[in-house]
């Protein structure tokens, strides 16, 4: 009888410790996945450019359910992962993204923020631009494969899926005309979320061809958002002005440090 009680207690203790071990392993796996996926994505975004620097004037028009916001300025991108944005309208603002640190400085009010995030920050404009320069939109490096392609009139339409994750990663539909990307449509597995970017008015700069207009529509179950990015005055692999290269927030300005 006593042996049976000891045995049942032993089984209970054993299953409890097994459960704790399982939970600890689960924590480790999830922690590794979360951190690794961020760094892999940051690497792939940053290393796939054939130029060392790029600058352009930028006008961004965002239309959400209730309002329209317009932002005007200039950006200076330095590969692999640094961007300097000088915004002139609607206010004077300087934003510098370098890896996982975003610095925002307001020259007129002399206020500054330093936002630190866990992973590298996804740069504005650059992923869309670099994606348009690649025949596969950069999808191969994320593990997507072509599952169908056909010509509709003189436009090549290709569909891309992620074979390992089934439908969970959603699908991409790319449309090319004269080897230039016309549109990229992402459809999420939930059946509601779609993101479509249309690329227009390509311009030749040195050996590169950049789209001067990128129109993105992002529709989810609850929200819809349209973004138009107008780019002009492209400069590739040129040296940036000294005040951009060596920019520092003035010493007397207090920098408010925050974490995302």
């Amino acid at each position: 009888m006593t042996t049976l009680v000891y045995l049942s207690n032993f089984i209970m203790l054993f299953s409890l410790s097994a459960l704790i071990t399982m939970q600890l392993s689960f924590f480790l796996i999830v922690y590794i996945i979360i951190n690794l996926s961020g760094s892999i994505f940051a690497q792939t975004v940053s290393m796939e450019t054939n130029f060392s620097s790029l600058s352009s004037s930028i006008t961004q028009i965002i239309q959400s359910d209730s309002e329209v916001d317009t932002v005007k300025g200039k950006f200076y991108f330095s590969a692999p992962n640094k961007i300097f944005l000088q915004i002139d309208y609607p206010l004077s603002q300087i934003m510098i993204i370098d890896g996982n640190i975003t610095t925002i400085y307001y020259p007129k009010s002399e206020k500054a923020f330093e936002l630190t995030s866990q992973n590298n920050v996804l740069l504005p404009v650059i992923p869309g631009l670099t994606g348009a320069l690649k025949p596969d939109y950069g999808l191969s490096q994320f593990g997507f494969n072509i599952t169908a392609q056909t010509f509709v009139s003189d436009t090549l339409v290709s569909t891309w899926h992620h074979p390992e994750s089934g439908n969970k990663a959603g699908s991409f539909t790319l449309k090319h005309h004269d080897d230039l990307l016309q549109s990229a449509l992402y459809q999420a597995h939930d059946g509601f979320t779609t993101i479509e970017t249309k690329y227009k008015q390509y311009k030749s700069v040195d050996s590169f061809i950049f789209p001067a207009v990128m129109q993105t529509k992002n529709i989810t179950l609850k929200t819809s958002r349209a973004e138009t990015v107008l780019l002009d005055d492209f400069k590739v692999n040129s040296k940036f002005p000294e005040d951009i290269l060596n920019f520092q927030v003035p010493e007397h300005v207090h920098i408010e440090k925050r974490k995302w």
Partner: peptide, 21 residues
């Protein structure tokens, strides 16, 4: 799992372009 949930996220920086302090 609840402790993992305390980890932070990374929102896109574009949301803060042209916005006031």
């Amino acid at each position: 799992g609840w402790l993992i949930a305390q980890m932070e996220s990374n929102p896109p920086a574009t949301q803060l372009l042209g916005k006031s302090p």
